[in-house]
Amino acid sequence: MGASGSGKSTLLSLLAGLDTPTDGEIYMAGQPLHQMSEDERAGVRAKDVGFVFQSFLLLPSLTALENITLPAELSGDRQARKRGLALLEQVGLSARADFYPSQLSGGEQQRVAIARAFITEPAILFADEPSANLDAVTGKMIEDLLFELNDQQGTTLVLVTHNNELAVRCQRQYQMRSGSFVNSAPAAEESANVG
């Protein structure tokens, strides 16, 4: 958690291996991300990482289904289409399989992005302000969907937000200010949920 410009997104990009640190070390699933080349990190991302971005970032020239299956296809998964259809069903967009992003509403686009993030069954899912570009109702729906799928797949969810309500749904919170952690605390519900 943190205000705009506090360094949340930078931290997220470092953790996900999108960027490399100028100093320090990052390990993911025991692998030293900071020592890896761009392509090696891409390999790690393909295997272990999922993303949900604030601005959805769907490929405009691929349909909803094709956007979802893209990561699976990139890692050569022959079941990609089958799994994509199942995920589309789960996010409630079966009827929109052949729609292009421009034909979908913001909420629908983000649902496609969430389905895309889960198709490779990643160990860690990074979500960067997943509901910030949406109205309150749709945003809430998206958050629910994200947590629901997360529960189902048992993924580690790393979520960046400035929204307190969303933050409290996480098991652990870190506060950032000017690029540094200022506070870390288990959420109130943590003890209740664990166990």
Partner: peptide, 16 residues
């Protein structure tokens, strides 16, 4: 540019 960045973020190598 952004499409390539997305594809790479999703795990594609430069070669791919």
């Amino acid at each position: 540019t952004q499409a390539v960045a997305i594809i790479k973020a999703l795990g594609a190598t430069t070669a791919k």
